[in-house]
Structure formats: C-alpha cells, structure tokens
Design a protein around this nucleic acid. Structure first.
Lengths: 318, 318
DNA sequence: GTGAAAGCGCTAACAA
DNA sequence: TTGTTAGCGCTTTCAC
C-alpha cells in the first residue's frame, strides 16, 4: 500500500475504498501513528496554531480568557502560544516575530483594560487578529464585556429592591470602562446621582465611605462599586460604622473575582464579565478568520451577568 | 548565490567567507527575511517550542510561573504552548497528543499543589519533562518552593521579634505543603506549639481566632498563617476583638498574593514563594534537557523570601 | 480506487 | 569557499 493512499484514507480526501480506509485507520491506530504537525503545516500553510499576546503578568483577567480560548481551540486541533509581554515593547516585538516565523494562523491580542493600544506592527503581519479586552483599530474584530449593560444590571437590580439613593464608587476616571459604567449608571439613576472616581483599591472604597458618612446630607441606601476590591473596602467601612448590609445599604460589586467577592461579609452580589465566554468567542472568531471566513468588524460587547450573593437581593444563601 | 550558502551564512554553520556572510545578512535584513520555523523544525527535529500543562483555571499560581518560563524561553527563540486542562483527563490527553504531534522539545508540568500527580502518559512520550509545583516520578526533575525554609523564615522572624507563644493556623492537612510547613514550624516553635488545620479560606482564619480567644488558657502573641487568605481572616477577627496588630499579636502570612496581603489592615508581612523565579528555573532546565544535556534528577526546593509589611516586624511603611 | 512523483522551505552532506 | 544534491514527513496533482 502506498503512502499517499494512507494519507487519503486518514484524511478522508480523494477517493478511497471504504474497506481500505477502515484497514488503514485500524493499523494507524494500532501502531499509534500520529501525523507530524510540522510537516503538515509546512505543506498546507496552516500551522493550526494561534498566538495569544498579553501584557498581564498577574493573570487575574488573562488566564480565565486564555483557558476559554484554549478550550475552544483544542477541540479543533489548534494549539495556543502564550506570549507574555509584561508591557515591554521589546518582548512584544520578539514574540510577534516568533509568531510570524511559526506561521501562526491567527493572533489574539489581550490587554488588561479595554483602552490599551496594541503594538502597531501587529496589523502589518498579514495574519488575522482578534482583540479581546483591548482597543483594536476601527476596522478590526474586537470583543469587550458590555460594561454599560453590566452597570445597568447592577443599578436595575438595586432599584428593583426599592433603593432610590444609589451611589457609585469606582476607579480611575481615565479608564474607559469606568466611564462607560458611570454613564450607564447615571442614565438610570438620574443625572444628580453621584459618581465618586478614585483608584481601584480597597482602600479607596474605605475612604469613600468615610467621606460620605461623615458629611452632612442624605445617605445612600445602595452602593454600586466599580470593582469587587472597592466593594470590599466599602463593606468593611460600613461594618465599622455598624451600618447593616443589605438592610441599611445594599452593595453590588463588579468583577466577580471570587477570592474577593466570596469572602466579604456578607458575601458580595456582583457583576460577572464572563471572561471565559469572552475567550470562547475570541477563539471561535480567530478560528473562522484563519479559515478565510470573514467576520463583520467592530466591537462586540458580550453581556455581563449578575451573581447573587447576600450583599444585595436574593442571595443564594439568604 | 546558492540557497545553501545563504543558509550557512545566516546560521554561521559551515565555512563562509566573512564578506559574503555580511552581504547575505544585510540583504536578509533588507527584505525582511525570516526562516520558516516549521521547515527548520521538520529537518532538525527540534521545534524550538515547549508545552506547559497546567490544571489551574484560576491563574493565581500558573500565570506568574508561566510568564517566568516564557521570559527565559523567548530569549532563546523558544515558544511556549499553553495547555489548560481544567483538571479534565480528556483535555490533558488531547493536549498531550497535540504536543507530541508538534514535536515539542520539552514539557513543563505544573499543578496547583505540590502533591498533585501528573497523567501517566506524560513520561511515555520520550520528551523531556520538568515538574513545577507538582509531584513527578522519583527520577524526574522537579522544582518546588522550599516550604520548610519558608516556614522557618516566618517563625524565626517572629521569634526574632521576641514572640514566644506562636500559633500556626493553616489549611487542609492533606496538602503536602501544609504538612511540610507545619513540621518546620514545630521544629522551631517546639513540639507543644499548636497547629490548627482547617481549610484555605479567610473564613477559617476568622473561625480559628474565635476558637482560640474564647477558650481559656494562654493566648498567642504571634500567628503564622498558612496562606494570605487565612491571615486576612485572622487579622479581621483580631481587629473585631480590639487586639492590636502587631502590638499584641504579630501576624505572618504565606503567598504574598498582593491583592490580599497589601489590603489587610495593617498590610501583611508574608512569605513569597518566588513563583516567577520558579518559572525561570524550570525554563532553563527544560531548555538544557531539550538540548540533550543531563540534569541531576530530584526535587530542587527554591528559597522563599520574607516580605516585610506592617503586621509583623520592620514594615516598609512602619 | 490507487500509487508514483513533485514539492512545501529549509539544513547537511558532499562534490566541485 | 561555494554550489549541488538529497531529504525531513507530509499532501496533492495526475497518470494508471
């Protein structure tokens, strides 16, 4: 039997007798034959590998996304190169060159904030690119969490609980996501509703509560926080003041970062950005692009979900 | 000029006239020539890629290590395949097959606890393997944090502060690391020193303090915690009881997970496992093995470091 | 339906 | 020192 017949049989290409095909497959199985991906890639111009460029050393956002991407790819026989740039342009260039040398079928660019710009060389490689949690050029394919919808989810939930004096304590004003959420919040809570920008820390949550509750005027009956860490600071500060949660003040966070949101007292109701799903979608998109299919460019915003715990609303243990 | 002369010139192999070599290099640069890694790998049997198998979806341990590995590899022109198994044996098999098909030069197996066993197929591939934060076979090359040394660092630090009634609150007894640390602690603190096993949660830290401070008997003047999360629970519980930290009770954690350790009040003095360095060492090791060099097998335990904050000893802001 | 032959882009012998 | 040749392991015409 010739080598090309075997190839045809295994790949189902060309015309092959059903009988021979079975035989070839059986024997291949028996001897544990596995085609050499390098050789195949060399010939077909498709390496069945894609690269993921990330600037996140810390992993909180990246790894859930990466594992989402990986999950989708592995079932299509596609592998994932992890390229950690640590925000170093030299490393980014090095990785990009390596990806080109390896003939990857596509690149996923990930950042840790949605307004972070990718390296300019990226688009000049002639390799399809998908942007996740990052700002691509206007004609590119990007996936973001739907920050506005997430914020609405939080505010509507609080309003549904009968709260009317909702305060928004969030992170830095120069983060796009913080602004988007703040705007969505104000649309629902009214323009008079107050937004307190600060930084993304627990400490800021704490400090903000000190400010609000030591000044005169009406106090909020609900607080929507820009991150779980901020929410943690808020909750701790409220507890210090013997303000009951959610009785006096309901609290909703943002991130569903379980190490924080499960551990607050009471556990935190919060918004989940569905990072893994973001990864799935990005994986599917890059797979399609690598096959030459076209995808409508633009930013697709994937819905966030509300995770009920006890700091606001029908908690799962309440 | 022939194609093989060019190859020789670029790779510095064979004998080449310095003049031609320069010329070739210049032109290669000019036209942006980059060798096809697939073709090269096919011929040389070295793909210059290595795979990293991890069961960690969450990323807290994996990503710092992975970025350490990646940092080392990228400078040697070696790329890293990320294989997230999510603890699913089917996925592990799938990834392992893919790595074989791609002729990776080596595999790094990573787990989230040092006594987690790797899939048995792993060693039968004929590909060098390095184990990090995981239990490899006895004749394998493994890198672990030095849990015993880390624990000693913590206890000695507390003793150096004049504390004599040190308590150890840690995680689950069936984690190897928990036992190693507990033993090292007892060697220094004396066999009468108490170890409280529980789970790895903040809640457990809280509960342990309730127990200790509501029973009769001498109270500890220092607490060494098995994780930063536990330490956070401990600190919160102590604060609830108006016990001053570090005045009445000094606290040391384990992990230096900054999102936790920076945010406790006061900030947490803790043990850092140097995960990135672990990644560096693993990267170097797999690189050496993939070149056919031999490395003395066994578990190499890399030293932990003590990070001073304010919950015990000379804090950086104290 | 099957097999011989060509060739993907490169490196490594060897001959010139 | 340079060029010629063979071949890595596979897919893909195209005769048979």
């Amino acid at each position: 039997m010739s080598i090309s017949t075997a190839s045809n049989a295994l790949n189902g290409t060309g015309r092959t007798n059903a009988e021979t095909r079975e035989k070839v497959r059986r024997i291949a199985e028996e001897i544990g034959f596995r085609p050499n991906a390098l050789a195949r890639g060399l010939l077909t111009k498709r390496s069945h590998a894609i690269g993921m460029l990330t600037n996140d050393t810390y992993g909180r956002l990246t790894l859930p996304m990466a594992s989402g991407v990986s999950e989708v790819l592995v079932d299509h026989g596609v592998s994932l190169f992890l390229c950690a740039t640590n925000n170093d342009p030299r490393l980014a260039r090095l990785h990009l060159e390596a990806l080109r040398d390896r003939q990857v079928d596509g690149i996923i660019f990930t950042a840790t904030r949605i307004d972070m710009e990718p390296p300019p060389e990226l688009t000049q490689l002639g390799i399809p690119v998908v942007y996740v949690f990052a700002q691509g050029p206007s004609d590119s394919v990007s996936f973001h969490p739907d920050d506005a919808q997430g914020a609405r989810l939080a505010v509507e939930h609080l309003q549904g609980l009968g709260r009317s004096r909702i305060l928004h304590i969030t992170g830095e004003r120069n983060y796009r996501a913080a602004c988007i959420r703040a705007e969505a919040y104000q649309e629902l809570a009214g323009p008079a509703a107050e937004v307190m920008f600060g930084d993304w820390s627990e400490e800021w949550g704490h400090a903000a509560i000190e400010t609000v509750f030591s000044r005169s005027g009406a106090k909020p009956d609900a607080i929507f926080c820009g991150s779980d860490e901020i929410a943690r600071g808020v909750i701790d500060a409220l507890r210090d003041r013997n303000i009951s949660i959610p009785g006096d003040v309901a609290v909703v966070g943002f991130d569903n970062w379980e190490v924080v949101s499960r551990q607050t007292r009471p556990p935190l109701t919060t918004i989940d950005m569905e990072l893994k799903e973001l990864g799935h979608r990005a994986g599917l998109a890059i797979l399609a692009l690598s096959k030459g299919e076209t995808i409508e460019p633009g930013v697709e915003r994937l819905p966030c979900t509300l995770v009920f715990r006890r700091s606001a609303g029908q908690g799962d243990q309440a």
